[in-house]
């Protein structure tokens, strides 16, 4: 089971592949989870959309060439880790991505997750619907007590996968969580609604999607990074999941035809000067909008 394997830009990294648990047969055995309840965090790797963006031949490039752990999923993981510290959940992170996404997934282990699975060989251009179907197959096989994930990914901002996954599983779900508690064997989720906050009590198993305003995800420590090498990361091809043949050939129902720069708002007038000048400019500006009632 332990053998060298090509990872990261074609380099052999013996030191750490030797402790990877790699198995691509029908399915795989997880570490002993019989006595622990498990939270499964579904995570995604995205471009670093907060770095500078440029266009090149119709495709988008970011000044940070390395992908990052989706910020919303990082919040979901942080919350899972806090729940784990307080209530003894085991935290498992699953990510769909290419083999080189293992470095991003390893960040999740470095933050404190116990175990991780990378589902590789996803269908090309998978959209939320495809992702949700693959995750549903994984969750059904894996049987966690809760799924916690970001409410959207920071690149596409779509936000559909959580609801889709919950419907496939026929699990209760709560989106846009800004607070999670575990009490009386149930998850109490504070959700941000349109004009109020809702405390919702969900029995296990359930699915929760998180706002990134829920917490500040911890930065992995050096010790966490070194310890992450010793934690199990399973690399599993999607076609080896139950029903995998169909999953690995799913066609996306939505496709991105083109990406174009957002038409930029032109910067308007910038007023500097004494207080009187500033207030005059403001009164004129406010007066030009009828809804303010200032001009009337």
């Amino acid at each position: 089971m332990q053998h060298a394997r090509v990872l990261n830009s074609g380099k052999i990294q013996n030191e750490w592949t030797s402790i990877w648990h790699i198995q691509t047969e029908a399915f795989f055995l997880y570490s002993d989870m019989s006595q622990d309840r498990t939270i499964l965090v579904c995570a995604k790797e995205t471009p670093d959309t907060y770095s500078d963006l440029s266009f090149s031949g119709g495709s988008v490039q970011f000044s940070n060439p390395r992908p990052v752990l989706n910020a919303y999923d990082a919040s979901a993981l942080e919350e899972a880790l806090v729940l784990s510290e307080a209530h003894g959940f085991r935290v498992h992170v699953v990510m769909i991505g290419p083999e080189k996404a293992s470095e991003t997934l390893r960040k999740a282990l470095a933050m404190g997750a116990d175990e991780a699975t990378l589902l590789t060989d996803a269908p090309k251009d998978a959209d939320s619907a495809v992702i949700a179907k693959i995750l549903a197959a994984f969750v059904e096989q894996f049987g966690p007590d809760a799924v916690i994930m970001g409410r959207q990914s920071q690149d596409t901002d779509v936000g559909l996968a959580g609801g889709m996954l919950a419907d496939h599983l026929q699990w209760p779900w709560t989106t846009n969580a800004i607070g999670i508690r575990f009490e009386q064997e149930a998850f109490w989720v504070k959700r941000q609604g349109d004009s109020a906050q809702e405390w919702i009590d969900s029995p296990m198993p359930c699915l929760i999607t998180c706002s990134n305003n829920l917490n500040d995800p911890r930065i992995p420590t050096l010790k966490g990074i070194m310890a992450s090498k010793k934690k199990p990361m399973h690399i599993v091809a999607i076609d080896s999941l139950p029903g995998g043949d169909a999953l690995s050939t799913l066609a996306p129902s939505t496709t991105i035809e083109s990406l174009t720069p957002m038409p930029e708002r032109a910067a308007g007038e910038l007023v500097e000067g004494d207080l009187e000048t500033l207030v005059e400019a403001l009164m004129k500006g406010l007066g030009s909008i009828p809804e303010t009632g200032v001009g009337s």
């Binding site: 907060y50 963006l53 901002d157 991105i256 990406l259 720069p261 957002m262």
Partner: peptide, 9 residues
């Protein structure tokens, strides 16, 4: 998309 910096068709 991309934090409203890009329009996606």
């Amino acid at each position: 998309t991309y934090a409203s910096k890009v329009m996606s068709k």
